[in-house]
């Protein structure tokens, strides 16, 4: 994919001519399609694969099978909801990574077939970049530069976003992602997958100070994260509490969640000061956590904080179509032999 540009990208521009882009997202366990035109989302369909819930995590082969089965129908629905005929599609954007290889393949192969059949350009999209740009859908007035906290089941990263295609990684997790910590914690507590909403629900009325779980690197001035110790601490705590009923499960859930949130908020605050920016955005599935939202807003009271809609935080194709349209509008597309990259990096 060409990655050098002579002109600066304009985000949210409306230059008069219509460009209709189909976005396809199949990187993990959401089969999604969306139609975007002139930076406006005309439709967005997301089918979450509930089948993984009983296994405590996403089963890659199952996810790939579901994508292959569902995608054609989901794309058809996205077109119908947008009242767009497939012949009107002028470009296709599809997530090429990072994600599960088999899952990505189902989306990319279908998208390529459709693009070749329609004789339209295709662009492979970086899922992480799409998450960052989802914030422009939430607020078209968002201005560069800003700090982005990307928190999902696969990533916990702090990015300095100076402009399009200019991203600096400020910090990342050395081990588990924050979303992974929620999922693994939920499993230890006997809750279902995905763990974030389950722990949040259980801990809603719990006391977040009941158990003092570890907060890794919180006193360091680096922007690194670590969540594997927290998961282990919970495991030991539950083992030692087996025969005691004195601490309520909802207090444990609230305390566990608070430990994750505390670290995220402090590091985000630190990053905003270090980068000397006025705005920060939260992207990825964990951004859906209400307690996180409240904590960020109170800690960063002087910074413009942007939380996209829930539907834009979790995996979706709207962000893929939106970013794809931006690239295609600027004349950037992928060669037809472009491949998936399960470990695709942002910078």
């Amino acid at each position: 994919m060409a990655r050098s540009f002579t002109t600066k990208f304009r985000v949210g521009c409306n230059k008069g001519y219509k460009l209709i882009v189909l976005g396809v997202e199949t990187s993990c366990d959401e089969t999604a399609a969306s139609i975007c035109s002139n930076s406006k989302i005309l439709s967005t369909i997301v089918s979450s694969q509930i089948i993984h819930s009983k296994f405590g995590g996403v089963v890659p082969e199952l996810a790939s099978r579901e994508h292959e089965l569902l995608l054609n129908t989901i794309v058809q629905q996205a077109l119908e909801e947008a009242s767009i005929d497939k012949k009107e599609i002028e470009g296709i954007a599809v997530t090429r990574g990072p994600g599960l290889a088999g899952a990505l393949l189902a989306g990319v192969c279908f998208a390529k077939g459709l693009a070749h059949g329609l004789k339209k350009p295709i662009i492979g999209i970086n899922h992480l970049e799409a998450h960052i740009f989802a914030n422009f859908l939430a607020d078209p007035n968002l201005k560069f530069p800003f700090v982005c906290l990307l928190v999902s089941g696969g990533h916990t990263q702090l990015w300095l976003v100076k402009e399009m295609n200019n991203y600096t990684l400020m910090g990342t997790s050395r081990d588990d992602a924050a979303g992974e910590a929620f999922d693994k914690g939920a499993r230890i507590l006997g809750l279902r997958y995905p763990g974030g909403p389950e722990i949040e629900k259980l801990g809603m009325n719990g006391n977040p100070q009941a158990v003092d779980f570890p907060r890794a690197f919180i006193k360091n001035d680096n922007l690194e994260f670590s969540f594997s110790g927290l998961k282990t601490a919970l495991l030991y705590f539950m083992d030692s509490k087996k025969n005691k009923k004195d601490i309520l499960l909802e207090d444990i859930a609230a305390s566990y969640q608070q430990a994750i949130i505390d670290v995220l908020v402090i590091k985000l605050h630190q990053a905003v000061i270090e980068a000397n920016v006025n705005s920060c955005v939260i992207a990825g599935g964990v951004a859906a956590n209400i307690a996180l939202r409240i904590a960020v807003e109170s800690k960063l009271s002087t910074t413009r904080v942007l939380f996209p809609d829930l539907s834009l935080c979790t995996d979706n194709a709207a962000m893929v179509a939106f970013l794809g349209e931006l690239y295609l509008r600027n004349g950037v597309s992928s060669a037809m032999e472009f491949d998936i990259d399960p470990n695709l990096k942002l910078a």
Binding site: E61, S64, R65, E68, L71, N72, V75, Q76, K86, A101, G102, L105, A106, G107, C109, F110, A111, K112, G113, L114, A115, H116, G117, L118
Partner: peptide
């Protein structure tokens, strides 16, 4: 091959859908 089968069928579905 599971993956091989999906590659062929997904690409075919995309082509087929276009027309």
């Amino acid at each position: 091959s599971f993956t091989g089968l999906r590659i062929g069928l997904s690409y075919a579905k995309g082509l087929a859908f276009s027309h």
